[in-house]
């Protein structure tokens, strides 16, 4: 459990550092959200999507900040209480949860792969730019899977 305590301490510091680094970015995104309006102008659709992008950026900034500080606080509290550390350790290392994550990730990956493949073919009839973009994403996904597979085949 001492080893796990060290991991939690390191994670707490890491989350705090990232949180502090992200703080000015999150404030900037909020400032832009309230003061800049749409990042794109010209038509009502462009203004709508510009505003939406602005909102998404601000939302992600603030959500990431909240997540980082909440996690750091959760680890800070757990480090003071051995029972909480054990609870956290069990939660993180529970084999059923790990199996669920692995299974859902595997199925999701296959669904995404086939969805990309089908959309690549369909969009090819209408818009070559979108089709080529999807094809690039498809290659990236397959390449990543291949690299990770090779890494793990040497580990296991």
């Amino acid at each position: 459990m001492e080893e796990y305590k060290k991991i939690l301490r390191n994670r707490k510091i890491l989350y705090l550092v990232f949180g502090i680094l992200l703080l000015p970015v999150a404030i900037a995104t909020l400032y832009l959200f309230y003061n800049m309006g749409s990042v794109m102008t010209g038509s009502s659709i462009a203004e709508f999507f510009g505003g939406m992008l602005n909102g998404i950026r601000a939302g992600f900034g603030v959500a990431a900040l909240i997540f980082l500080f909440m996690r750091a606080f959760q680890y800070h509290r757990a480090l003071k209480d051995d029972a909480k550390i054990k609870e956290l350790y069990i939660q993180e290392h529970d084999e059923r949860t790990i199996a669920l994550n692995e299974k859902s990730s595997k199925i999701s990956f296959n669904v995404i792969l086939y969805a990309l493949l089908i959309s690549c073919v369909i969009t090819g009839f209408f818009n070559p730019t979108i089709s080529l973009t999807i094809l690039a994403v498809l290659f990236f996904v397959i390449l990543t899977k291949g690299i990770v597979y090779i890494i793990y085949s040497r580990k296991i």
Binding site: Y89, I90, H93, D94, R96, A99
Partner: peptide
Amino acid sequence: LALAVGTTRQTITSIEVGKYTAS
């Protein structure tokens, strides 16, 4: 039992009903 063997209550439930096979 879950706490004693270092797992969650949900895992014990799933093993008991045969939905999940323990490692």
